[in-house]
């Protein structure tokens, strides 16, 4: 048991993010429900964001905001944070668009299942 808890304790945010990414991928591979696949794809995106934010993490670093007195020492890397704000916005808008498209499909074909949807498309 000690080794199991040691294993969990040495996991970093980055490891967990990669795990989350593949959980999302698994969901997208296995779920037949359209909403659930959209959620899975959203999880993949969030996992990638979490992984990116954790890169170049230095414990105890200052927020990357310039102040008059302090020199730029021990400042957190601002690049991942700045980039991920962009990526989060993109992710939200794409998921919103997927949901909007799903609504269209749902009103017309009245199903939330990929397989049934394909069958109804061919009729």
């Amino acid at each position: 048991m000690a080794s199991v808890s040691a294993f969990f304790q040495q996991l970093t945010l980055a490891d967990l993010a990669v795990g989350l990414f593949f959980i999302g991928l698994f969901g997208a591979m296995t779920q037949r429900n359209i909403i659930k696949t959209i959620i899975s794809v959203g999880i993949m995106d969030v996992a990638a964001v979490a992984f990116f934010v954790s890169t170049n993490f230095t414990p105890g670093a200052r927020p990357p905001v310039a102040t008059a007195d302090a020199a730029a020492v021990m400042m957190a890397d601002p690049v991942p944070q700045a980039l991920m704000i962009t990526a989060i916005v993109i992710g939200v808008s794409v998921v919103a668009m997927c949901l909007a498209m799903y609504l269209r499909v749902m009103y017309r074909y009245e199903t939330a299942d990929w397989d049934i949807l394909i069958r109804r498309l061919e009729d």
Binding site: F21, I38, D45, A48, F51, F52, T55, V94, C98, M101
Partner: peptide
Amino acid sequence: YIMMNFIGMAFMMLGIA
């Protein structure tokens, strides 16, 4: 189209990270 490309782009973002 948008969902499968979104998965691809998630792969790409992880790779960029």
